[in-house]
Design a protein around this nucleic acid. Structure first.
Length: 746
DNA sequence: TGATGCTGCTTTTTT
DNA sequence: AGCAGCATCA
């Protein structure tokens, strides 16, 4: 026991050893959150308060769940495999499989990922003759998922107008279709499980009694439905509720856009009669200056639960700020610094380039490539999302559950076997009339004679050959182990032949091989090694983003995907108004605060060194934008920053300016600025709407005599300040701001 | 059925 | 600018 608790700080120790009550743990970035969570579980088990069966721990990502299992296994001599540790979706899935009858699902129900769902919706819109222009599939998908996350079935959706009426109609039809085809989408996993517990008292009581301790990671990311699910499972308000150990950080809530409600933390406090809130504020990750910067920044947000990170270590280095001329220039700067740090011994993989939006990676990648620095970009296509894998899985799905129309449509003519649009349409019409699945219809159509002929290879093409193919596969694979099944399917379906014939099919073939490997390790690791289980696994776990992560490579990713990670050095690029905070966040409720939390997350990723950079101009959507530095830079106290001057060496010819100012004003104009931060060195005003007085590079202006133009440079201070303006008609002029009577436009 | 060209979109993302 | 998805043509 002592060894388990050794090395915990007082707050951590208190959290780990709390009595059996619901508590809220406010765990700051880098405060040892996962350690507390796992040690708590180990402590509860080791002290005999609960058996491993009595614990349910829920996370958001498979990665987090896996890490939790590994760490618990390292602390206790128990097998964590059977424990209820998993993602919301994974645990719900487990319950639904166990009680599929009560949940009203076929035993072979399939899980659809986002792209499957999208395809189903498109198909549906076509059958319902709904205009895809007026009702974009994406939006329909959002509507349905959003409704489900609010716990609303189609019948209970509020209808205000024609639009919502159609949406509701589509949602309703979607539900019918899913029921008929035995499809469960991600949101459905949660909603169906919630309903299962809500409607079956015996089951509910069973789980209530079983799980005396429920632990929730990243509580600030829970949505309404997840919160309700937890309440139900914990038996809140009943005589003997489970103790819920909720760990979260309201300052790191960055997923409101997808339904996360940080407000669940406050609700939790009230609903679960929380008597104890423990704050984990000691940070074991970053040096002082970085933490101070993060603290100062997040203080600009309102309604926080309140938390201040501190470290027992030193102040460390100042936060470096770089003002680039162009996005190109910014990338060049980062490359130089990365090279220097790498030469000093910092591993490339211990450095990260973070950005707000994926589009920004292009320029960075370009420069890194030219500099021959190896890098890895996170995000993008995942393993089980690749088309060749999806095709293979569709065949496997048909073996397990042939009534899966979506799977059938995907591969009925892939590889091409002469089933064109017309025969497909015939099939679909027939299936609609008979109210049966496409497979049943097809089977009906080519029963007996034709299929027999096809099986004897008399028919090499057309529907009968497809039907016989699937039938043969089903028979052949009945007794094969999973990897062999896949090998068989890949060969018999013609996928291998098809990609072999394709000029650039080598990668795809490799991935298909990888699928067999994945199945092999799945069979070794999973309790249930059936085909069904493997298909669920593939849906619930998208697989790695990219392979070869052993290589020492620089890490490129969005700030969102950096959450939970840490690096020796972090480069945060594109710190410009409109980009970070993002333009679109202006129209969103509390959008700016979420952006600030995002910035907070980014800042707290760095252990030793943090770079913030912004650029005067940037290519975006094919157009050059002139942006003002992000207000977030201003929100960090000056004494923590070190402004780096652009060097004049290198990149010959490109002109750079010597002042670290992104925006400039004449002295008397500066007095209009409101916050003290914006006064210093004439940097960005905190409020960019104070435009009339705050000139900037890229500003469109109008002049009495010369017409309209754009400010492209400036020099001097106060009354001597001159700006260079490029007029559309009159050419380029230097003008004294004091006398020129320029009017800002836009 | 495949190749080619056009249109439209473009914050963030896990399951 | 760059890309994906779609429609049209050979």
């Amino acid at each position: 026991m002592t060894s388990l608790l050794a090395g915990l700080n007082p707050a951590q120790l208190e959290a780990v050893t709390l009595p059996r009550l619901s508590v809220l743990i406010l765990a700051g970035a880098g405060s040892g959150k996962t350690r507390v969570l796992t040690t708590r579980i180990a402590y509860l088990i080791q002290s005999g308060q609960v058996s491993p069966n009595g614990i349910l721990a829920v996370t958001f990502t498979n990665k987090a769940a896996r890490e939790m299992m590994v760490r618990i296994a390292s602390m206790l001599p128990i097998n964590t495999r059977g424990m209820w540790i998993g993602t919301f979706h994974g645990l719900c899935h487990r319950m639904l499989r166990a009680h599929y009858q009560h949940a009203g699902l076929p035993q072979t129900f399939q899980i659809f990922d986002v792209s499957d769902q999208q395809a189903v919706i498109k198909r549906l819109l076509k059958t319902l003759a709904v205009d895809e222009k007026a009702y974009p599939p994406r939006q329909v998908q959002w509507f349905i998922n959003h409704a489900k996350e609010e716990g609303l079935r189609a019948a209970r959706v509020e209808v205000h107008d024609r639009f919502t009426q159609t949406m509701q109609h589509v949602y309703d039809a979607y539900e019918v279709l899913c029921r008929r085809e035995g499809i469960v989408d991600f949101a459905e996993l949660l909603l169906r499980c919630y309903e299962l517990l809500a409607q079956h008292e015996t089951l509910r009581n069973h789980y209530r009694e079983r799980f005396s301790h429920i632990l929730v990671d990243e509580f600030q990311d829970t949505n309404r439905l997840q919160y309700q699910w937890l309440k139900l499972l914990a038996g809140m308000g009943l005589p003997n509720p489970a103790a819920v150990f909720a760990v979260g950080d309201d300052d790191q809530s960055i997923y409101a856009f997808r339904g996360a409600r940080a407000g669940n933390m406050q609700d939790f406090e009230r609903d679960f009669a929380v008597q104890k809130i423990i704050k984990l504020e000691q940070n074991y990750r970053s040096h002082g200056n970085i933490l101070e910067a993060a603290n100062a920044l997040i203080e600009h947000n309102r309604g926080r639960l309140g938390k201040n990170l501190w470290t027992a270590e030193g102040q460390g280095e100042p936060v470096r700020v770089y003002n680039a001329m162009t996005d190109f220039d910014e990338a060049a700067f980062i490359v130089d610094e990365v090279k220097a740090l790498h030469a000093e011994g910092v591993a490339l993989s211990d450095m990260a380039l973070l950005y707000r939006s994926n589009a920004q990676s292009r320029v960075l990648e370009h420069s890194l490539f030219n500099a021959a620095l190896s890098y890895r970009v996170y995000g993008g296509m995942r393993f089980y999302e690749r088309q060749e894998i999806k095709h293979a899985l569709a065949y496997l799905r048909l073996i397990a559950h042939p009534d899966d129309d979506q799977a059938l449509l995907r591969v009925i003519n892939f590889p091409p076997r002469g089933i064109g649009a017309r025969s497909l349409e015939q099939l679909q019409d027939a299936s609609r009339l008979q109210h049966t699945s496409l497979w049943a219809t097809a089977l009906n159509k080519c029963g007996g004679e034709q299929a027999a002929m096809a099986e004897q290879r008399t028919l090499k093409k057309g529907l009968p050959s497809f039907v016989s193919l699937i039938l043969t596969m089903q028979r052949a694979c009945a007794d094969l182990p999973l990897p062999e099944t896949i090998r068989h399917v890949l060969a018999q379906s013609g996928l291998i032949d098809h990609y072999q014939a394709e000029r650039e099919g080598a990668d795809r073939l490799e991935n298909l091989n990888e699928l067999i490997n994945a199945a092999t390790s799945f069979v070794h690791e999973a309790e249930d090694d059936s085909l069904m289980a493997f298909l669920s696994h593939a849906s619930l776990e998208g697989g790695e983003h990219q392979a070869d992560y052993h290589q020492d490579a620089l890490q490129l990713m969005t700030v969102h995907s950096a959450k939970g990670l840490e690096f020796h050095t972090v480069f945060l690029s594109g710190l410009e108004e409109g980009l970070f905070p993002h333009e679109n966040s202006r129209n969103e409720a509390n959008g700016l605060e979420e952006e600030r939390r995002l910035m907070y997350v980014a800042t707290t990723r760095a252990r030793r060194r943090l770079y913030l950079s912004f650029s005067q101009s940037r290519m975006l959507h094919g157009q050059t934008h002139y942006n003002v530095p992000s207000r977030f830079i201003n929100e960090i106290p000056e004494h923590l920053l070190k402004w780096l001057q652009p060097s004049s060496k290198g990149s010959g010819g490109s002109f750079r300016w010597t002042s670290p100012q992104g925006e400039f004003s004449t002295a008397n104009h500066l007095t209009n600025q409101t916050t003290n931060h914006s006064m210093r060195a004439g940097r960005t005003p905190a409020d960019p709407t104070a435009q009339p007085y705050a000139w900037r590079i890229g500003q469109t202006v109008s002049h009495e005599k010369f017409g309209t133009g754009v400010i492209i440079n400036y020099e001097g201070q106060g009354v001597d300040m001159r700006v260079q303006v490029q007029f559309s008609r009159a050419g380029t002029k230097w003008l004294l701001l004091e006398y020129a009577k320029l009017t800002p436009l836009q």
